[in-house]
Design a protein around this nucleic acid. Structure first.
Lengths: 224, 224
DNA sequence: CGGCTTGTGTAGCCAAAGCTACGGAATGCG
DNA sequence: CGCATTCCGTAGCTTTGGCTACACAAGCCG
């Protein structure tokens, strides 16, 4: 997918009717964002539907005391639902959004998206599926917060976000923000995991040494 | 709304096309549920779209240790989204559902709902709006969990769920389940609120004595 | 009235996690 | 190489919240 790929070549928009295509052609805007750049601030009105072409967005809550906590991520091919929300409900976006990788977005103004939604079955399905998926992620997250302790959630985050080779390139501060806690706590817990031989820790990088052990920890069987 | 009201008389289904009406007429089922009755168990496949005609459902997570935590409520006129989710995504419902009041439901089988969705703009809008609303509630809840302490969340719950006359008819156990904590903790916190003159506590019932004070507590200004 | 069930108040202990405060290591850059 | 920045490790203290255990109060019903 090169830089100039129009949104009409992307999966869910590939089979639009001519009318739909025409609509989109007039309005497509492509936006680039460098990595730790803020996109949306809480309370801001959504100006349209955002569609992630490449990269990754992070949606997070910001507590009064400055603590962050990741709500969910948006990957390539996914729509940024706040748009959909705000589109259909006229509500303000209830969180912050940030690009965690260099990200390319297509934006579709609200009225156009509404029209597309009314006319194109593909867009309807995409919309509903995106919202549903998000509901699932949020429910899972919420359950996790209540049901698991921080060390389990950390272990989980390491497993989930680790690359194929068992590497996780995040600083402890980023992990802390992700889990809604503080750096020191993460340091402590990472210390424990290292002592237990489950991971190794380098600067800005964690190596998974014993994935099964992490999984066992998450499952709650005998924390070493 | 008497007992026999068909779903086609309820708001979003009132202006269906004849085709839509015909579809619905064939399949409508009305279900009654007595109050603390379980409707759905986690992992169960959703058999169709549920539509709350009267009463209230509570969707909650259940931790391995038996702790509950409310995820959100579903009131009259709202659709139970798990259905929508499962309908469009073929996912299992990720939580438990329970009737907290005597509740009447209409169920619409999956395939029928899909057809309605394809044909009836009203149903499309309802679907998207319901999902969006839920996303908002979940995000708000998730943020609350991270950002506020238990006494603030309790104060909030008391304010939000209190009736017009400033009465909240819930046992401490129910409050604990709602907030994802235990009875003793609630007792302690209620004790503090009573000492601070913000509420009065009777058996299975709380009286709000100083709503403004509660609001101040939530906002974080000088917890007495 | 007496016993049963359900709900509440209290007290103390403990583990989890937040906060403060460092010192020191790794990296980057001039 | 020297310096600055960023990141990590540790230590100790404090607060919050979970757990145990029990006594009492309020309704319910025979």
């Amino acid at each position: 997918m090169d830089d100039m790929t129009p949104i009409t070549e992307i999966a869910p928009f590939r089979n639009l009717s001519d009318a739909g295509r025409a609509l989109l052609a007039q309005v497509q805007v492509s936006v680039h964002m460098r990595s730790p750049q803020a996109l949306i601030h809480k309370g801001q009105a959504a100006s349209g539907a955002y569609f992630v072409l490449a990269g990754r967005l992070r949606v997070y809550a910001l507590a009064p005391n400055g603590n962050e906590a990741t709500l969910y991520f948006i990957g390539p091919g996914e729509t940024c639902v706040f748009a959909l929300n705000s589109l259909f409900n006229d509500l303000r976006y209830p969180a912050w959004v940030q690009a965690v990788e260099d990200t390319r977005l297509a934006t579709i103004p609200g009225p156009v998206y509404r029209r597309l939604f009314a006319v194109e079955p593909e867009v309807r399905d995409l919309t509903v599926r995106t919202l549903s998926t998000l509901v699932f992620r949020l429910m899972a997250e919420l359950e996790e917060v209540h049901a698991y302790k921080l060390n389990q959630r950390l272990a989980n985050a390491i497993l989930v976000h680790g690359s194929g080779e068992g590497l996780l390139r995040m600083t402890q501060q980023q992990l802390a923000d992700h889990l809604g806690t503080t750096r020191e706590v993460i340091a402590r817990l990472i210390g424990e995991l290292v002592d237990a031989g489950l991971i190794e820790s380098r600067r800005a990088c964690i190596r998974i040494a014993d994935a099964a052990g992490l999984a066992r920890l998450i499952a709650g069987e005998a924390a070493a």
